Simulated assay, not measured.
Amino acid sequence: MGIRANIPKLYEVRFVRTDCQRGVYPELCYDNVMTKEQVKAVLDRVLTWPSERQEDAAKVLMLMESQNESVYRLTDEQVEEVRRRRADPKARKLTLEEFNERLRRRLGE
């Protein structure tokens, strides 16, 4: 079943494994184009939901909207570094103490 079973057949959804939005986190994404009419139909149905669920939907949409306004963006170099680090799931992680010790050694303290 999984996530695909919960998506209504309003439009064709092609699932792809890709880097979402700004190419940072490889996640399950979909590649589709919804028409304005389809978006409006979904939003109209939301208005028929109980008020608590409508509020939940509004909060999610406002959160998504606020993410577009963020001033924080990764540079291409930072994106590549994130990809490199995520590519090795068994990479050794440093504790904060180990990191601080390495930093002190580099700074000559």
Score class of each variant (00 low, 15 high):
residue 66 S to F: 01
residue 66 S to D: 10
residue 63 L to R: 11
residue 34 M to I: 05
residue 107 L to A: 11
residue 67 Q to D: 12
residue 8 P to G: 00
residue 60 V to C: 08
residue 46 V to H: 01
residue 82 V to E: 07
residue 84 R to K: 15
residue 7 I to T: 02
residue 9 K to R: 10
residue 52 E to D: 15
residue 98 E to D: 05
residue 73 R to D: 07
residue 105 R to I: 03
residue 79 V to I: 15
residue 60 V to T: 11
residue 8 P to E: 05
residue 51 S to F: 06
residue 17 R to D: 14
residue 82 V to A: 10
residue 70 S to W: 02
residue 96 L to V: 15
residue 38 Q to D: 00
residue 101 E to C: 03
residue 79 V to L: 07
residue 33 V to T: 10
residue 38 Q to M: 07
residue 47 L to M: 13
residue 63 L to P: 00
residue 21 Q to K: 04
residue 13 V to K: 04
residue 91 A to L: 11
residue 97 E to H: 06
residue 21 Q to C: 04
residue 57 A to L: 04
residue 6 N to A: 14
residue 82 V to M: 09
residue 71 V to T: 12
residue 16 V to E: 14
residue 83 R to D: 01
residue 27 E to V: 06
residue 47 L to A: 13
residue 18 T to L: 02
residue 40 K to M: 12
residue 21 Q to G: 03
residue 42 V to K: 01
residue 76 D to Y: 08
residue 52 E to H: 12
residue 33 V to I: 06
residue 80 E to F: 01
residue 106 R to P: 08
residue 100 N to T: 12
residue 30 Y to E: 00
residue 28 L to T: 05
residue 15 F to T: 04
residue 67 Q to Y: 13
residue 18 T to D: 11
residue 2 G to R: 07
residue 20 C to G: 03
residue 20 C to I: 08
residue 28 L to V: 08
residue 46 V to Y: 03
residue 92 R to T: 14
residue 103 L to Q: 13
residue 52 E to N: 12
residue 87 A to Q: 06
residue 84 R to M: 14
residue 20 C to Y: 11
residue 78 Q to A: 12
residue 73 R to H: 12
residue 64 M to V: 04
